[in-house]
Design a binder for these strands. Structure first.
Lengths: 136, 136
DNA sequence: CCGAATCCAAATCGATACTG
DNA sequence: CAGTATCGATTTGGATTCGG
């Protein structure tokens, strides 16, 4: 094993520990752009420009950076076609597909529960807590 | 609906659009500390100090900030006992429990696939790409 | 068309010290 | 015990420019 990770988890890794390898994996996943790019990659092969259009507001810099991280970690495969104009396609690996299913569940959850969360935030702003505190 | 979100999703929200409410939910979830704190909260009620010990390396500042965000969004309930010394307990709401299951799957995924990802990163560093490029 | 490179502003985070 | 306050380091992100 990489280093001393708590042994009370199914696979000998414990993301709660900073030195544990799985902790760094979680850090990698904890990114808005990773969610969205992996989500945009879900059906099949995608070109760079497609991704940029699908993930609204992502800059070339962040898109490239995110794709490089995903490639480095074995979640995405990149294929370059030596033609002019350049053509580069991205595709999820098996590992990436596997992850994609989970991340998409989160995305769907976010979409499904957005209203409740919006309401909760509104209440928070209005000072909506402690029962029966009537402010005239 | 909050604003113009693409209508081609099951719930009328589309996290790929920046102005969409669900996009901000995703931003909230895309945090290492949210993963870990929600994970640490999974079985039942937890005191502040317990959480701090469980989530290795979290500072009081980040722990408080994360808990406040989760409370604001209706995922965590906070109960204060007016005693000395102070006692404060945190608990997932139903919504939070629901989310917790998903986030835990991600955490387990990270733990399970940590070895493959470590290997992939190592290969990346070694320049391990393009087939049959023999570097003497 | 697909990026790489650079610069800079801003937000985030961590460490530490302090309080009721 | 359960936070708050402050400060500096680090990271992040966006805008822009350039090249193959």
């Amino acid at each position: 094993m990489d280093s001393e990770c708590a042994p009370d988890t199914p696979f000998g890794y414990d993301a709660f520990r900073r030195e544990c390898m799985s902790h760094t994996v979680l850090e990698m996943l904890a990114s808005k752009w990773v969610y969205l790019v992996v989500g945009a990659l879900k059906p099949g092969r995608r070109r760079y420009g497609e991704l940029q259009r699908k993930v609204e507001g992502i800059t070339p810099k962040m898109l490239t950076q995110t794709l490089r991280i995903l490639e480095r970690d074995g979640l995405v495969r990149r294929e370059i076609f030596p033609v002019i104009p350049p053509r580069v396609e991205y595709e999820l690996t098996d590992l990436g597909c596997n992850l994609s299913d989970l991340l998409n569940q989160i995305r769907v959850w976010a979409e499904r529960h957005a209203p409740e969360i919006r309401d909760s935030r509104a209440q928070s702003l209005a000072g909506g807590d402690e029962p029966a505190e009537f402010r005239a």
